[in-house]
Structures are given as C-alpha cells and as structure tokens.
C-alpha cells in the first residue's frame, strides 16, 4: 500500500503533469477559462487515465511489443468515447463548454505517456494509483490556472462573485474585470508566468543541488510524449532497431 500512496504523491507533487512535466498543454490552455471547466476537464482526463492504465496494465503481457502503440490508442480512444457519452448524457452543460476538447483527450500526452512509461511495465494496482495520482495532479493544475483566470477575468470564483464589481452607472466603485484573461491571450500570459515561476524554482533547486524532473512536455520535438521510443511511428514498419 506504501507504493500506492507514493504513486499519488508522485503524480500530485513530484511529477505534477501541469507544473513540473508540462504535459497536455492544449487542454490546459483551452478549457481553463473558468475554474469549473478546469475541474471538469481534469476529472474527465482522470477517469480515462485510471481506466486506460488499468486495462493496459492487465493486458501488458498479451499485447505484442511491436503493435503496442496502436493497441494503446484503441484502448484510450474507447474510454474517451465512453466518457464523452456519459458527459453528454449526464452533464450537458459541461459537455457544451468543453466541446471538441473531450474527444481530443485521446491525443493528450499524459495518457499515452503514462501508458508507455508506467502502465505497460507495472502491475495493475500501482498502475491504477499512478493514474489517480497523475489525474489528480492534472486536475489541481487546471483548477489552479482556471481560478487565476476566472478571478482576474471576471472577479468570480466557481461562478460565485468574489470581488464586488464596479458599476459606473450607479457611481459605485469596485473591481473592474480584466476581460482579456478569459480570452485566448490570457491563457498564454498566465502560462508564461507559470513557466517563469517554474524556471525560478528549478534554478534555485539546482543551486542547492536538488534534482527536479525535467519538463518533458513541449521540449524539442514532442515526438511524441512518451512514444519517442518509436520515433512517432505508431504502426510497426519492420525496420525499427
């Protein structure tokens, strides 16, 4: 059981997908216009991640090594489809606001990355907890960015008004929302400051001689996120070494 709590700590703190590894940047930027969207996206990804980690770990001795990428993709895409239908049926408002980014969970680097680097090499139970840890880490990351953007952009948090808004017509002073933070440019700006902060922490840690895991997300080629072993080739061509 110790191993399992270690996996959750690893996903939430040590290798947090948003703040440390910088994985899955597309949804991070796109859906964090409000805290609730961030949490919704994070939890949907968590569900897919836990289920796909579980199934891939169960099948790890059956799937031949040469076709593992297509097999992983089919598993992940099936679970994404299931989650998409569940959201459409039970939480239509969230489904509408996340839109196309739900099916795009398939190409989220975190999921294929964990399948390749953890679930395909480890037993079922640790893989499930690895999924839970990574998923919650991603959810916390998205929620944090969502809260920052929502508070600055609208003065609200989870849809509740936090800062009283200024009303020029009534001559009432108050908070003037910086609308650009909930528009696309705001996403880039918040992420820029986040990465700058991360650089600062990293260089401080390096001075003290501590090791921080490298950001693998959008480095040089993203070729891609965990499946660099096969150079981006999903189907076997017969001339891999």
């Amino acid at each position: 059981m110790n191993n399992c709590t270690e996996r959750i700590y690893n996903g939430l703190v040590k290798e947090n997908p948003t703040f440390v590894l910088m994985l899955g940047m597309c949804p991070t930027l796109a859906v964090t216009t409000s805290a609730i969207n961030g949490v919704g996206m994070g939890l949907s990804t968590t569900v897919v991640l836990v289920l796909s980690n579980m199934l891939i770990s169960m099948l790890r001795k059956i799937i031949p090594d040469s076709v593992r990428m297509p097999a992983f993709i089919v598993v992940v895409a099936s679970f994404v489809t299931i989650v998409q239908f569940l959201l459409e049926g039970f939480v239509p408002s969230l489904y509408a606001s996340l839109g196309i980014y739900i099916p795009l969970i398939v190409v989220n680097c975190i999921i294929l990355g964990r399948a390749e680097s953890y679930a395909s090499k480890n037993p079922v139970l640790p893989s499930i907890f690895d999924g839970i840890g990574m998923g919650l880490g991603f959810t916390v990351g998205l929620a944090a960015i969502g809260i920052v953007r929502e508070v600055i952009g609208t003065g609200a948090i989870f849809g509740r008004q936090l800062l009283p808004l200024a009303d020029a017509a009534a001559g009432k002073g108050g908070y003037v929302p910086v609308t650009i933070f909930i528009l696309p440019p705001g996403a880039f700006l918040v992420l820029a400051f986040l990465v700058a902060l991360q650089n600062k922490v990293r260089s401080n840690a390096a001075k003290k001689g501590k090791k921080v895991p490298e950001a693998t997300g959008c480095g040089e080629g993203c070729a891609s996120c965990g499946n660099s072993a096969c150079g981006g080739k999903v189907f076997p061509t017969g001339n891999e070494e």
Binding site: G186, L189, L191
Partner: peptide, 20 residues
C-alpha cells in the same frame, strides 16, 4: 526566469491579441 519558453509564450500572448 523568462528565458526560453516563457518569453515565447509572452510573444504568443501579443500575437493572440493581434489576431483578436
């Protein structure tokens, strides 16, 4: 702290404002 990715993202912010 802003060397590398952060300054690229700030540039992207300005480009996104222009594309608005």
């Amino acid at each position: 702290s802003f060397q590398g990715t952060p300054i690229v993202l700030v540039t992207a912010t300005l480009m996104a404002i222009a594309f608005c």
